[in-house]
């Protein structure tokens, strides 16, 4: 019975694969049109100071972010553990969004003296979406710790937004224990229902995702996943050098 069905099955498979490949080609064509539209929006919208919607914001964000953060990340040297002198940057990081999205329906802050991002105006802020069970988020932590140690005294703050992926990551006790174990010493926002996660990233959304806000709250860096540590440090150094 199995052998009997094998040949038609191969033929059907070939047809199905051809259809799927056709769909892929169509989708690629659509995406090219979409990306052309997006580039037009970004190019024409640079003077727009109103907060963009999540969908268009993530487009604008990554258009330039890709250029600044997709350097080969895996071979980058670790962040310096002692702060180099902050100098005037040659190329200031581009403004990706004029205003960062709000913290939506959060459940509180851990180890923090502040309770909003607005209270951190005047500082350069790394906002990192993470969850303690996420393998790649844990891999980022040593670099984040190094950059925090190196630039904290110069006006850098880090805010980790803990957006749990699974139910066991939602328990506050487990989060506190993980922060202690993993050496997370910066303020952490509890985003239990992932509303802020969606508000900032739209769909698709990823762990980890790293943004950098300048002293006025504008988004100046965006990177998905591990890596881009050198680009992150360059951005922080450049933004610290900007006038408050």
């Amino acid at each position: 019975m199995v052998e009997k069905g094998a040949k038609p099955s191969r033929r059907r498979a070939a047809v199905a694969v051809a259809i799927m490949l056709g769909l892929l080609v169509v989708a690629i064509g659509v995406s090219r049109l979409v990306s052309a539209d997006r580039e037009a929006i970004v190019a024409g919208g640079s003077s727009d100071t109103s907060p963009p919607s999540v969908a268009s914001a993530s487009v604008g964000t990554t258009t330039t972010a890709a250029a600044t953060t997709t350097v080969p990340p895996s071979t980058e040297a670790p962040v310096a553990t002692t702060a180099p002198a902050v100098t005037e940057p040659i190329d200031p990081p581009p403004v990706l969004r004029e205003e960062h999205p709000p913290l939506r329906d959060i459940d509180g802050w851990l180890q923090s003296d502040v309770t909003s991002l607005e209270e951190l105006r005047g500082k350069v802020v790394i906002v990192e979406f993470w969850t303690f069970g996420c393998y790649n988020c844990r891999n980022r932590l040593p670099y984040t710790q190094d950059i925090y140690a190196a630039y904290r005294d110069q006006g850098l703050e880090i805010v980790g937004i803990h957006s749990p992926e699974f139910a066991y990551e939602k328990e506050v006790d487990a989060i506190v224990e993980a922060m202690d174990r993993l050496g997370v010493t910066w303020p952490v926002v509890l985003d239990t229902d992932r509303r802020t996660f969606r508000e900032w990233q739209g769909s698709p959304a990823y762990w980890p995702r790293t943004y950098v806000l300048d002293r006025t709250g504008r988004v100046r860096f965006d990177h998905i996943g591990e890596g881009a540590y050198g680009a992150l440090e360059d951005t922080v150094v450049a933004l610290l050098a900007e006038a408050p």
């Binding site: 995406s31 990554t62 790649n136």
Partner: peptide, 24 residues
């Protein structure tokens, strides 16, 4: 699918949000 975003996939996704065709 909620991928583990390592350095390589991270670069692909970051670029893919701008130029989706490059990510296929």
């Amino acid at each position: 699918w909620l991928p583990c975003v390592g350095p390589q996939l991270g670069s692909v996704l970051t670029r893919g949000l701008v130029e989706p065709s490059t990510a296929v």
